[in-house]
Design a protein around this nucleic acid. Sequence first.
DNA 1: CACCCCACATTGTCTAGTCAATCAGGACCA
DNA 2: TGGTCCTGATTGACTAGACAATGTGGGGTG
Lengths: 272, 272
Amino acid sequence: MWGEQGRLAAMSPRIEESPRPVYQQLADSLRAKITAGELAPGEQVPTEKALAEEFGASRATIRQGLMVLVNEGLIVASRPRGYFVRRHERCYFRPQAEWEEQPASPEMDRWMTEQTTLGRTPSQRINVEIIQPPDRVADRLALNPGDLVVVRRRVRYLNEEPFNINDTFYPFELVQGSEIVNPADIARGASEVLAELGYEQVRAIDEIEARMPLPDEAARLELGVGMPVAVHRNTGFTRDDKPVRHTVNVLVGSKHVILFERRKPQGATGNE
Amino acid sequence: MWGEQGRLAAMSPRIEESPRPVYQQLADSLRAKITAGELAPGEQVPTEKALAEEFGASRATIRQGLMVLVNEGLIVASRPRGYFVRRHERCYFRPQAEWEEQPASPEMDRWMTEQTTLGRTPSQRINVEIIQPPDRVADRLALNPGDLVVVRRRVRYLNEEPFNINDTFYPFELVQGSEIVNPADIARGASEVLAELGYEQVRAIDEIEARMPLPDEAARLELGVGMPVAVHRNTGFTRDDKPVRHTVNVLVGSKHVILFERRKPQGATGNE
DNA sequence: CACCCCACATTGTCTAGTCAATCAGGACCA
DNA sequence: TGGTCCTGATTGACTAGACAATGTGGGGTG
């Protein structure tokens, strides 16, 4: 009971300020079991009722503790079956792959190819819009106020589970009338189409940030609480430094590792 | 009251399944105000009591709604002053900077230099340990079981606020007896010392993932709930592909953007 | 004027209950 | 056998309270 908790606090030898609240103790206890592997991924966590008895606390307090773990992404609640330890399996996301010397796949784009070879079943949904760009996009594409963009929006699935969001923006006047405005998969890649139009990309800037998803992102990715996303923004430039493409990838944090490889430039001294 | 909620649900024209729970409505309402700028960063959110009256709900329900926003990183509670809209300002983190052709700073390492030039006051805490490496590190450094590593652990601060954790691991047998084992700042950079020892790095692999912080990371970075981190792992290789250094950066998500720049390799065809 | 202390408003922790929603599995029936 | 319905266990949403902890600001004191 609550009173008991209060009394214990008063009697304890005051190690380090105040005693940890019950709900934190619960979270710590379960977290330890999970990280130690005592509770394996997919396994069921004891029910609220069982924990309430074990910790001698009310259900609300137990729930508060379980919420901590849910928000940390360690467990998920599946009503009315109970709480389960979350499964994690990440796969690599390689922005550099777009310029690697391998033939493009005839049907799907390169991301898909990489996935299929791993024995998974990828799919995607494409839709195309012509819109006024969000500020961030307008900035990266160096557009003037009022300029329009074509955006190809994709949600990619792996084994029926939403995996990431991929929105690519092109200045409207560049791609007007081309295949890019068509909401179908482009076998040879949208960037190849862009190159055919005279805008070959030779340089790119990648920006990566970690944050919690916005509500609409959470909905599109079917994310529960406690699942951060990695946002990867990629801007492609032509030889004369004109930005012609801006891609926003929203990656489910627990499912991706972003990978880069770098070489020391010839003649560089290095200073770290 | 609760009964009222139930009745409303029964009477409503059943748009799209069930009505949104009160605490979600609260979260949605405040989130909209925040993203619209109606509630500016740093500004105070109405108190629990005020919101309870406004929404005709109990304090527990209001708290549940506020917790959603706390976990999304949109607001922070500062007892007993109230809830405030969180401030966000990011700065760039550029792994590639280590190999750029600029002179190393004489006193601080390059990260610090970049910060000071922006008119902030950086500081760091270094400590050095010799330990058995965690599995992930042992794997990346291709160590044998039982091999030891030297780890230089740093917490970096900006304006007294913890900013990121930077742990760099070196195979013990490579750096034994060198400056690297010394828990002081190395003016010319630890990698330069490594180069002097005959292990110049010419290639690096970067891995980036987004997740919620572990409890000890949260403690070291003084993170509240709802703040994801970006984990940046960097492995450095010598000319003969021997891994000689592994760095783990834990970056507070809301404070960093990781930046890369790439060029299309000469002769590459491009296939996306 | 400066300083200290206390009251107050606010969030943090917790209890003990109610009713709703949902899924699994068993009982029942054709 | 196979489908249908119902029951029970479990989480989701919510109420109405209680006492604890803690900055802030105002009032009193030296």
